[in-house]
């Protein structure tokens, strides 16, 4: 393994699923590490980041981390009260997340570490912690540029895109694809002929926009939480049906798709059945896209 890689520490959406039936995929909530030599980018701080923090404490070369948050729903920040480097002097931690100014990030993250919900506050963090907004200007870390884009999920939620060694990586763990498409279908009868023509245009625009951020991406880590049956009941919860994810990724010319934010209600067998279905869809379309199930512990070498 080279020193440039992506490692999945948490792949589960919504809430942890530490069940014996879920262990082939993993039960921790979102956390993806992008390691570029001694530079560490941590996308989201779900429960998976607890183990990452513990792992980082075992080494002494790296003392600076960049935590890049898509939003502040619990499954994306709940490791921070247990993230050991934050409580350890000598560490520098740069945290990026939605907000108008750094104080917004600080207050949102501090809010989950207050009595009676937690025994110690962020004031007990002994690391040098700084807060930064990732939007509208891209995040700049050394010569690395990480751009953000707004996704279809409750509240202000971003996805991120970066280029590494000529390869593009997009991380969009929570994003409900094809939402307006179905909204239009549901109400279509209410619209007159001229309006329906405009709505058809709107659907086409939405389809283009859905794939804009993932076009020709080498590595797309994307929400694929629901089966079509589940999505009927959970439409409007802010997550994608995996069929929409796979179809959109193929439309966009994605090279490798990593199904992410797995539904904690789905066990390993169910997720693997979803994956088999993606293989059928890819085969039917004659696509060269490779589709993976994101699994905890999975390592992807960025130098290959």
């Amino acid at each position: 393994m080279s020193s440039n890689y992506v490692r999945f520490w948490g792949v589960r959406g919504s809430y942890p699923a530490p069940f014996s039936t879920h262990m082939r995929v993993g039960g921790n909530t979102p956390c993806v590490e992008v390691r570029l030599g001694s530079r560490v980018l941590i996308f989201d701080a779900g429960t998976g980041a607890i183990a990452l923090g513990n792992e980082l404490m075992k080494q002494s070369e790296i003392r600076e981390l960049n935590i890049i948050l898509t939003h502040y729903h619990w499954d994306h920040i709940s490791s921070l009260p247990y993230f050991v480097p934050a409580f350890t002097p000598g560490w520098k931690i740069n945290i990026f997340g939605p907000g108008d100014e750094p104080a917004d990030l600080e207050s949102r993250l501090a809010a989950q570490m207050k009595a009676p919900f937690f025994p110690v506050e962020t004031e007990t963090w002994l690391a040098d912690v700084s807060y930064h907004t990732p939007h509208p200007e891209p995040i700049r870390i050394g010569n690395l540029s990480i751009s953000s884009f707004t996704v279809h999920h409750p509240g202000i939620t971003y996805g991120y895109r970066l280029e590494v060694n000529g390869k593009s990586i997009v991380y969009a763990p929570d994003n409900e694809l094809s939402f307006i498409d179905r909204s239009i279908e549901e109400r279509k009868e209410e619209f007159d002929q001229d309006e329906q023509t405009l709505l058809d245009d709107m659907k086409q625009e939405d389809k283009s926009r859905n794939i804009e951020f993932m076009t020709d991406v080498h590595m797309l880590i994307h929400d694929a939480q629901y089966t079509p049956e589940d999505y009927v009941r959970k439409r409007g919860w802010g997550h994608s049906c995996f069929i929409d994810t796979v179809e959109s990724a193929m439309d966009a010319g994605v090279k490798q798709l990593f199904m992410f934010s797995h539904d904690p209600n789905n066990d390993d067998d169910q997720i693997e059945a979803m994956h088999r279905k993606t293989q059928e869809l890819i085969s039917e379309r004659g696509s060269s896209m490779v589709c993976h199930v994101s699994r905890e512990g999975m390592l992807i070498d960025l130098d290959e």
Partner: peptide, 11 residues
Amino acid sequence: TSKNYAQDRTL
């Protein structure tokens, strides 16, 4: 907007 979420309405 197409975002039909309670959190967005509140915001």
